[in-house]
Design a protein around this nucleic acid. Structure first.
Lengths: 345, 345
DNA sequence: GTGAAAGCGCTAACAC
DNA sequence: GTGTTAGCGCTTTCAC
């Protein structure tokens, strides 16, 4: 473990092979013509010594770490973990290593992470900042000085971005509910400091406007994306006056909170209350009844985010910022039904 | 973005402050007494230039990267993602950065990752190898040359380990089912190449032995830990001759596969079939009926794994290998009932 | 208390 | 085609 034996260096290889350091380097990087005999000797020395190049020294010299970081609020959110997984795969196959950090919706944490990554000279960054316009955060991102792909955030500066169609997705969900006869539809989502919350609000309003209906602001809640928040707001609305007949969980981690609140209030889905979740999950698929969701394919998004960054790194350093938009799809299952007369009041 | 302006170095700081490079270094590392006046000048220069030390150069000099890696089969498994999250938190607070890689149950992948991490000179490693005894894998782990904490694997060499009490947990689950009147209990788990699979087999046998009953090997399946495998085996057993009256999903990701198979076979839980899952999850909590599980607290485990490694790094380089055992707890919900007479045959 | 200089392991430019 | 050397940015001796 402690492995006190220091690893062999290229110098050791050169000495063992009886060649100069430069020659050893040449065969290792196989970028110049080397006498076949010497080449073999070096290769032998490498395998005997168990040499493998020190990536830290290479980074020092080459000024690239072949490391890319992902900063995300919470890696345990199923959608996010799929995003990370697929991005990591692409990155790994391209020879990069993934550094992962959770910002936990804390500005200080995000700042600290950004700072640490800047010092470490990562090559690129994929992240979803907790606030698009906060000055310190913008400056800290700038300070890292590497290409950034923003995940569903309004890009500032020169960052590329992956944009998700939550506005249209939410509009579609609300229209579906409206067509079923619902009028009192609750939307619970996260901070308006950030694109996903804002877009869902907009989509909600779009649907009501298109139907010529007025929205009830009291049914629109936006603070943070946690299941705990979803639970609290759902419970409050469900047990307050003029309760909603349908709830949209406007965040990928929020459905469990909504479902807990419904269970705790002794209500049944969809007889007493209709619900629509965000993103497909084991829960939405296997719940009884299965839950209708506004789905977005985080696996595909992870792949594209990684590719966007890699492409920027490889051959598009100077291109203008790009943004890729991903749509949503409404997966209709059995969690929505026309509102019951008794609960319509 | 490209930020073509190279970042200031300590040399720039020294020049700007009118001191020598050594003095600048001393105030940055605040480890030696420096004339207060000079100190202030250096500090000023740092803030004016926006200097932050190059961690790559520090690593080169100090021979520590302050980076720790986690290698795990699949980061999207809810339990694992909680493990990663809590470990990352501890690591980050201790000044380390997390490198994450998914081995995906592929030997080549695991080998490749190990190799890449060795070159990068990480300081420590937390992992759950796909095979404890495979020679190449053992050698590759050794080759990294840093302290390792193995996650629920029989440690080889000098590695520390976190051990999970799946044997006792499975025994407890089987006894619970036996007491309910079940005799034909299926156990679906992953590879026996690895501790968790083996331990569950043992626990299953323990329970039958304690009850003086013989096990039916055909009800014990062990290939891999995926939900797909769980689905296939569940479907086969449920629709074969002498079907089980209860199924234990012996892997943290397997419950969805079992539930899909049950739904596809038009069976009801627990009237037609009892089920016990591994690890608590949103699905097991919010399913109808809620699912009984053998729970293990991956959050706590992540914390301890990180602490174990950090402690080893800090002040116990020479101590003998340690192993920490975590127990399981049976969370009884409503997915198990006495077997129906008609299905007992 | 401070400056000068060596050296970590590597790549690439430069001579030969 | 090969060897020698400078230098990436830093920390830490070693003199003074």
């Amino acid at each position: 473990m402690g492995d006190r034996v220091p690893k062999p260096t290229i110098k050791d290889v050169a000495r063992a092979a009886g060649v100069s350091l430069g020659t050893a380097s040449r065969v290792i990087n196989s970028n110049a013509t080397v006498n076949p005999k010497l080449r073999v000797k070096v290769l032998e020395a490498i395998s005997i010594l168990g040499y493998s190049p020190n990536a830290v020294a290479q980074s020092m010299r080459l000024k690239t770490t072949q490391a890319i970081a992902i900063i995300i609020r919470d890696i345990t959110v199923p959608g996010f973990s799929h995003f990370i997984k697929s991005a990591q795969e692409i990155l790994y196959d391209a020879g990069y290593v993934l550094m992962l950090a959770a910002s936990e919706d804390s500005k200080d944490r995000e700042l600290g992470i950004l700072n640490s990554l800047a010092r470490r000279r990562i090559d690129g960054l994929i992240m979803s900042t907790m606030s698009e316009n906060d000055e310190d955060l913008v400056a800290a991102r700038e300070e890292v000085g590497v290409p950034i792909v923003l995940l569903d955030r309004e890009p500032t500066g020169t960052a590329d971005a992956i944009i998700l169609g939550y506005r249209e997705g939410t509009q579609q969900a609300v229209e579906y509910l409206l067509n079923l006869g619902h009028a009192r539809i609750a939307l619970i989502t996260g901070s308006l400091e950030t694109r996903p919350g804002r877009e869902r609000f907009l989509g909600y309003e779009d649907a009501f406007a298109a139907a010529g209906l007025a929205v009830d602001r009291r049914l629109m809640r936006a603070r943070n994306f946690t299941p705990e928040y979803a639970f609290v707001e759902s419970t409050a609305m469900l047990n307050g006056r003029d309760p909603p007949t349908a709830i949209i969980a406007g965040g990928v981690a929020m459905l469990p909170g909504v479902m807990r609140a419904i269970a705790a209030s002794n209500l049944r889905i969809p007889a007493d209350i209709s619900v629509i979740g965000s993103i497909n999950s084991e829960l939405s698929e296997l719940a009884t009844p299965p839950i209708t969701v506004v789905n977005v394919d985080y696996r595909a998004i992870g792949i594209e985010a990684a590719r966007l960054l890699l492409d920027r790194l490889d051959n598009a350093l100077e291109d203008p910022p790009r943004r890729l938009k991903f749509g949503t799809s409404l997966i209709i299952r059995q969690s929505c039904a026309p509102p019951t007369a008794s609960r319509l009041r």
